[in-house]
């Protein structure tokens, strides 16, 4: 707590002073345009309907609802990964990674502080996007509040979990742009944000299952679109939590060696 809360506060100050609108507009545009694309295609090409294969693969016939929940989850995941995974390489670029290593603060609370700040900003962005979706006529049924809350927690653990090994990769190779965007386009294809992963060839589908976001999305959709009780979503929630914690554990193990490599290589990130 002694590390997490001050980090949360510092990152809020940085966002409010330096990057108020850049991040906000960037994240929001991606979500809104994804829903917009689905909306236009649904009406102009599908004539307000999706093919029968979709309902079978997705478990719901509500194409727009499916894409909207996916777009919200996508904004959430991308933003969380960007903040948490890039926290340390940003410290390195700004020249404060050494100070971080010298300070007696532990890494996990520091990253949790970064994650909490990301969570608070992202929730605002997602709410604005959902308001847009409702405005253009997407109807989301009333969710099951307990399942939704559980899915939200599991999804947060999942994205936090995969961000930590990513952070280790970024500081050890001194590169963020290629690493982060490759992960994002892969996630977009594999995790089922905008279409059911059942459409993918089997090897890709299994690759998607290795990312905890895939199971988090199933739980989120069960809560929002199907009003599923907690027991129905439990297998996906447990899978998501287990995978997320496994990534987190591996990531925390890797951070120490990665920091050593980063500092030996010097300040050029």
């Amino acid at each position: 707590m002694a590390t997490a809360l001050p980090t949360l506060r510092r990152n809020w100050l940085v966002t409010m002073r330096a990057y108020q609108w850049t991040y906000f507009v960037g994240t929001l545009a991606t979500g809104i345009l994804t829903v917009g694309l689905a909306y236009l295609a649904f009406h102009a090409i599908g004539g307000g309907r999706a093919g029968g294969g979709f309902a079978a693969a997705a478990g719901t016939a509500d194409y727009l609802g499916y894409v909207t929940v996916g777009a919200a989850a996508s904004m959430f995941s991308v933003r969380m990964v960007l903040w948490v995974a890039k926290a340390q390489i940003t410290e390195q670029r700004e020249g404060t990674l050494e100070s971080q290593v010298l300070a007696p603060a532990r890494r996990l609370p520091y990253l949790i502080g970064v994650g909490l700040q990301a969570l608070t900003t992202t929730v605002v962005e997602v709410v604005v996007m959902l308001a847009f979706a409702i405005m253009i006529g997407v109807r989301l049924p009333a969710p099951d509040p307990v399942t939704l809350l559980a899915a939200f927690v599991a999804a947060s653990v999942a994205v936090f979990g995969i961000s930590v090994p990513l952070s280790a990769i970024m500081i050890s190779v001194g590169e963020a742009h290629i690493t982060q965007n490759t992960l994002f386009v892969a996630m977009g294809l594999l995790c089922g944000f905008t279409f059911p992963p059942g459409y993918l060839p089997d090897p890709l589908r299994w690759l998607g299952e290795a990312l905890p976001i895939t199971s988090a999305l199933r739980a989120l959709r069960a809560a929002t679109l199907e009003h599923a009780p907690l027991s129905a979503a439990a297998p996906d929630l447990l899978l998501c939590l287990a995978l997320g914690l496994a990534y987190l554990a591996v990531g925390l193990r890797l951070l120490g060696p990665a920091e050593r490599i980063a500092i030996q290589r010097g300040g050029s990130a």
């Binding site: 694309l37 689905a38 295609a41 649904f42 090409i45 599908g46 004539g47 309907r49 999706a50 093919g51 029968g52 294969g53 979709f54 997705a58 194409y63 894409v67 965007n181 490759t182 386009v185 892969a186 977009g188 294809l189 905008t194 279409f195 459409y199 993918l200």
Partner: peptide, 22 residues
């Protein structure tokens, strides 16, 4: 990136193109 994004786009619009009358 373009190839993966292309595949994502294809699968995203696929359900709509399979709708009756599309």
């Amino acid at each position: 990136w373009p190839v993966l994004t292309l595949a994502t786009t294809y699968y995203t619009v696929l359900p709509v193109t399979e709708a009756p009358g599309a």
